[in-house]
Simulated assay, not measured.
Amino acid sequence: MKRGTMTGGRQRLAQQVIDELRRQIDVGKLKEGDQLPTEPQLEASFGVSRTVVREAIADLRAAGYVRPIQGKGVFVSDPKASQRFSLTPVEIRTIPETLELLEFRLATECEAAAIAAYRRTAEQEAVIAAANKKMAQLIDDGKPTVEADFEFHMAIAAATNNRFYLDVMRQFGPRAIPRSQFTTLPEAANKAYLLGVHEEHVEIATAIADQDPERARQAMRKHIIASQRRYRRLAEQ
């Protein structure tokens, strides 16, 4: 495979990685509980960039094929297990609105993260970190995380020092976090999934702390696109 230089090319390469890993899982070459090769190993094996590998893993995770375990790696899970649920009629009707909201968030929050990276004060940086630390503690305690997740995104909006970003987030409230609307989804309380979300938050917060606007923008983009993929699949189902 050749490395993609455009977004469309990168997506095609990511899909090739996804298709091959799913094939290996489906035929039993990779079994439930097996650890996936490391990112550098996958890069070498497929001849693609780290970005492509991460996008592929995010997609597989959203589909329930793999799960990250903090400090250990990414492991094969049972995709059928994550599909053993039924959405309520209200949740089904909410899917289109959720996709629209995520599309809007993609257009606004990526730029908010970039602006926060060069405008944030030390105090605002601390608030972002505190919100993320709170979410990590709630995950460990097995308690609901939606409010803390929303606080993290609110803290970034506040760190732009542009009241309009903050006003928009306030208008949405915690429903901006999609899983708040889909309580029957397995990942709503799945520790491995939530730890993956938290790790994405860490990437965003670190980029903001490092005052790296482009890295913050891309980290937020990766975070929101992962949600888009999940809810697009629900729409297809």
Rank of each mutant, 00 (worst) to 15 (best):
M1L: 14
M1Q: 06
G4M: 02
T5W: 15
G9R: 12
G9Y: 01
A14C: 10
Q16G: 06
E20W: 14
L21Q: 00
R22L: 07
R22H: 09
R23H: 15
Q24E: 09
V27Y: 15
K29W: 11
K31W: 01
E32C: 08
E32G: 11
G33H: 02
D34P: 02
Q35T: 07
Q35M: 04
Q35F: 05
P37E: 00
T38I: 06
E39I: 13
Q41I: 06
E43S: 05
E43A: 01
S45W: 11
S45H: 14
S45C: 12
F46L: 10
F46M: 11
F46Y: 14
T51R: 13
V53A: 01
R54I: 08
E55S: 13
A58W: 06
L60W: 05
P68S: 03
G71M: 02
V76W: 02
V76F: 01
S77M: 08
R84P: 04
F85Q: 07
S86T: 09
S86F: 11
V90W: 12
V90G: 08
E91Y: 01
I92H: 05
T94P: 02
T94F: 08
I95G: 04
T98W: 05
L99F: 10
L101G: 07
L102I: 14
E103V: 10
F104C: 10
R105Q: 12
T108P: 04
C110V: 12
C110K: 12
A113Q: 01
A113S: 12
A117S: 13
A122E: 09
A122L: 15
E125D: 15
N132E: 09
M135Y: 04
A136W: 09
L138Y: 04
L138E: 13
G142D: 06
T145V: 09
D149M: 06
F150Q: 04
F152C: 10
M154T: 07
M154Q: 06
A155W: 04
A155T: 09
A159M: 02
T160N: 08
Y165I: 03
V168F: 10
M169A: 12
F172R: 04
P174H: 09
R175F: 07
R175D: 07
R175G: 08
S180R: 03
Q181D: 02
F182I: 03
T184Y: 06
L185K: 03
L194C: 06
L194E: 00
L194I: 12
L195M: 14
H198F: 03
E199A: 02
A205Q: 03
A205G: 00
A209V: 09
D212N: 13
D212A: 09
P213H: 06
E214A: 11
R217F: 15
Q218L: 13
Q218M: 03
M220W: 04
I224T: 07
I225W: 04
Q228T: 10
R230S: 05
Y231K: 02
R232F: 10
E236K: 13
